[in-house]
Structure formats: structure tokens, C-alpha cells
């Protein structure tokens, strides 16, 4: 295999894994808690812009940059996205379920507008360039550079995956699913449903912000048009295809959908003349819409489906006593007296 092909494969996978981070954040919000977020692009953009502002070298014509080290940028990006998610959630989670959807839709539009118009901070339509890239010192060797970047992003995904798996199996994660499945029952057990929802929403938003920061540093350049509503739909398609409620599904869906997307884009640019390409690309988007509807109608659980999780303590106890647990809750029939 040629070096270019391996380098391209690494580039493709690294991009796909940055989407996987967004997908993991969405899975916490939607898959575990049932919160509908249609403003993913907004949270990703906040993470990307904050991290870029914190880490780029000082420039004359806009605020910052502050030249801070990259990890601080990532941290700042995810914390600010989490803060915005907290505020939006604070405002709407106590109201009707779909007000959150409308409000997140609005947040994404507002963030987009700020990125475009607040030129002294965001660079306006031209965006921010010269964002420090990880392993920039190795950029001379494209193969090593792309492998190192892939390894870094893969490590982030892996760490996040392990942390989230731990989280959903913890008592906290069980409360989230209890609220999603049967809110009155969870309330009756004394769980403050809205507080748990708010926490999950803020953490999920923070993860999306982290994804934005990681992606911005990988590409090295950001502009408002990277964060159009299209991004939100792509991430949704990834999670639904992969299987919401399942962290492995979220990662698989991201790689799968990004692969289909990249392949069909290559196909379009190869088959259609330049004048017709934008038109053909709209069919690509229609396909995502049809896929979302079809999965909702035909296979609501996605490719992998929701992973049924119980407390690991319970699993250990059960395993040692060799008792089979019925995965589906079947009614226990009482023998007649």
C-alpha cells in the first residue's frame, strides 16, 4: 500500500472519530436520557471557537489569541459548551419536552450568527486560521504525522468511551434511564428528574464542545460555514444508524455514516459535471432525511440497538451464583394458591 493511501486512511478515520465524539455526547443526551438536541452544531462551534481563541498566537485585529497550551484550549472549549448547554437546559427542561428542541435549534442559529457577525472576536466570515495542530513538529513526515494524530484522537475517543460506559453503569446512569422509561416511578423514588436531565444535558454539551475543539485543532482552521445545521443532521444520522443508547453504536455509526458520506461525495464529484454537483449533493442530504425516517419506522433501535446495562455489582453477584438473568423483563407468574 502506498504512503498516500495510508495517510488518507488515517485522515479519514481521524475525522470520523471527531464525529464519534459528538455522537457520544449526543448519545448521553438522547440515547440515555431522551433529550432531543437539534443544536449540536452550535455546541460544537462554541467548543471550536473558544479553544481556537485560547490557543492561537496573539493577533492584532481580533481579541486574543492567548497562546495557551492546547489541552487548556480543549478544556476551555468543552467547559464553555457545557455552560451554554446548562443555561439552555435550565431554561427549557422544566417545560414541554419539545421546547428544548426548539431552544437548541435557536441556540445553533444564534451561535452561527455570532460567529458570522462578531468579527473582532471570531474573525467573521473568514474564520480563524493558524490554530496549533497536535504534533506540528512532525508535519514534515506526512505518514508519521497522520498516524500520530489518529492515535491521539483515538485515545480521546477510547478514554471518553470508557468514562461514559462507567457513567451509564453507575447509579447516576441508572437514574437517567429510569427517568426516561418511567418518570413517575423515578419521581416516586425521590429522584429529582429535571436535575438529572440537566446534568446529562450539560455533560453531553461539554462532550460536543470537546469534539469541536479536537476537530478544530486537527484541521487547523475554522469558519462559520463549518457549523451549519447540516452538521447537526449528520451527527443525528450517525447516532440513529449506529443505535442510540449504545456507546459502541455511536462510534460505529459515526465511522459508517462518515464513510458513506465521503464515498458518495467522491462519487458525485466523479460522475457529475461541476455545474450539477451542488444539485446532486442535495440528493445526498435527502438520503440522510430518508434514512432518519426509515430507521424510526423500520428499526427504531438502530444497527446495534440499545445495550441493556445493569450495575456491574449485580452482574458480578449474578455471575458468581450462576443465575441466568432474563434480559427481557418477563412477568413472573405466581403459582395459584
Amino acid at each position: 500500500m502506498s504512503v498516500e493511501l495510508v495517510a488518507y486512511g488515517c485522515f479519514f478515520l481521524t475525522m470520523a472519530l471527531t464525529y464519534a465524539i459528538m455522537c457520544l455526547g449526543l448519545n448521553l443526551q438522547w440515547g440515555q436520557t431522551g433529550l432531543f438536541n437539534v443544536g449540536i452544531a452550535g455546541f460544537v462551534a462554541v467548543g471550536a471557537y473558544v479553544s481556537a481563541l485560547l490557543t492561537t498566537p496573539d493577533v492584532a485585529d481580533r481579541l486574543g489569541g492567548f497562546g495557551l497550551p492546547m489541552p487548556l484550549g480543549w478544556l476551555g472549549g468543552s467547559l464553555s459548551a457545557a455552560l451554554i448547554a446548562y443555561l439552555v437546559g435550565r431554561l427549557t427542561i422544566r417545560l414541554r419536552a419539545d421546547y428544548l428542541a426548539i431552544a437548541t435549534f435557536g441556540i445553533a442559529a444564534a451561535v452561527q450568527l455570532l460567529a458570522l457577525n462578531l468579527e473582532p472576536v471570531t474573525g467573521g466570515p473568514f474564520g480563524i486560521g493558524f490554530i496549533p495542530r497536535p504534533f506540528a513538529g512532525r508535519a514534515g513526515d506526512p505518514l508519521l504525522f497522520s498516524v500520530l494524530n489518529l492515535a491521539l484522537v483515538a485515545a480521546v475517543v477510547l478514554l471518553l468511551y470508557m468514562a461514559l460506559e462507567r457513567l451509564v453503569r453507575s447509579p447516576w446512569g441508572r437514574v437517567l434511564r429510569a427517568i426516561r422509561e418511567d418518570e413517575p416511578a423515578a419521581l416516586a423514588l425521590g429522584k429529582n428528574a429535571n436535575r438529572f436531565r440537566l446534568q446529562a444535558f450539560a455533560i453531553g454539551g461539554g462532550i460536543m464542545g470537546l469534539a469541536g475543539a479536537v476537530q478544530a485543532h486537527f484541521i487547523g482552521f475554522i469558519a462559520p460555514e463549518n457549523y451549519l445545521p447540516m452538521l447537526t443532521f449528520q451527527v443525528w444520522a450517525m447516532l440513529i444508524v449506529g443505535g442510540s443508547g449504545n456507546n459502541r453504536g455511536a462510534i460505529l455509526g459515526a465511522v459508517l455514516v462518515w464513510g458513506i458520506w465521503a464515498l458518495s461525495a467522491a462519487f458525485i464529484s466523479a460522475t457529475f459535471e461541476p455545474g450539477q454537483q451542488a444539485r446532486a449533493a442535495s440528493l445526498q442530504i435527502a438520503l440522510i432525511g430518508v434514512a432518519i425516517c426509515a430507521v424510526l419506522l423500520l428499526r427504531p433501535q438502530g444497527v446495534l440497538g440499545e445495550a441493556r446495562v445493569v450495575s456491574r455489582h449485580l452482574l458480578e453477584a449474578v455471575g458468581s451464583r450462576k443465575i441466568r438473568v432474563a434480559t427481557d423483563a418477563q412477568p413472573v407468574r405466581q403459582p395459584p394458591e
Binding site: G34, F36, V38, A97, D98, A101, F233, W236, R279, A280, S282, L283, Q284, I285, A286, I288, G289, V290, A291, I292, C293, L296, L297, P300
Partner: peptide
């Protein structure tokens, strides 16, 4: 649930708009 309906409306919107654009 309500939210599944909202999501379906999102998919429908995406499809319709892109077909009109096409």
C-alpha cells in the same frame, strides 16, 4: 413518544427541502 415524532418531522423536513432543492 413526542420526541420521536419531532425527530421524524426533522427527517421529513430534510428530505422535502433537499428534493425541492434538487
Amino acid at each position: 413518544s413526542i420526541i420521536v415524532m419531532v425527530m421524524a418531522s426533522f427527517g421529513a423536513a430534510l428530505t422535502l427541502r433537499s428534493l425541492i432543492e434538487f
